[in-house]
């Protein structure tokens, strides 16, 4: 039976952890770097300061965790939105592959960006 797959609770756990991370970190980040700096509402931080910040191991680790969990949050939520919103649950194998596959690929990309894997 589908709902007895042992991985489901783990996916729900990733979904909630990612939801919390995205809700805590992303409003500020997208407001600053996506809206306020481009529109000139705020002066972007000088390059050296930003470089020091993103070079710090703690920043990299935290940002990696936030990004990876948020991707699994997105994958899980999108999966059910496609199931119910478009009523295409019968395509579940394709949907799962695309959603979770994308999250896994993004997590690996993130690990490369943050220097966790070469």
């Amino acid at each position: 039976m589908r709902n007895k797959r042992p991985i489901e609770p783990f996916l729900w756990l990733l979904f909630s952890a990612g939801g919390v991370m995205a809700a805590l970190f992303f409003p500020a980040l997208i407001f600053l770097f996506g809206v306020a700096f481009p529109l000139g509402w705020l002066q972007p931080p000088p390059y050296d300061r930003l470089l020091a910040l993103v070079s710090h191991p703690l920043t990299r680790l935290v940002l990696f965790g936030v990004c990876a969990l948020s991707l699994f949050h997105c994958a899980h939520r999108l999966r059910y939105t496609l199931y119910d919103g478009l009523q295409i649950k019968h395509l579940d194998e394709v949907i799962n592959t695309v959603c979770y596959g994308g999250a896994i690929a993004g997590t690996i990309a993130g690990a490369v960006v943050f220097g966790l894997i070469a």
Partner: peptide
């Protein structure tokens, strides 16, 4: 959730460019 994915991409791009 699609916007969440976009913000992840955007943040990763920012970190790459700063590096």
């Amino acid at each position: 959730s699609l916007s969440v994915a976009w913000v992840v991409v955007y943040v990763l791009a920012l970190v790459v460019r700063v590096s």
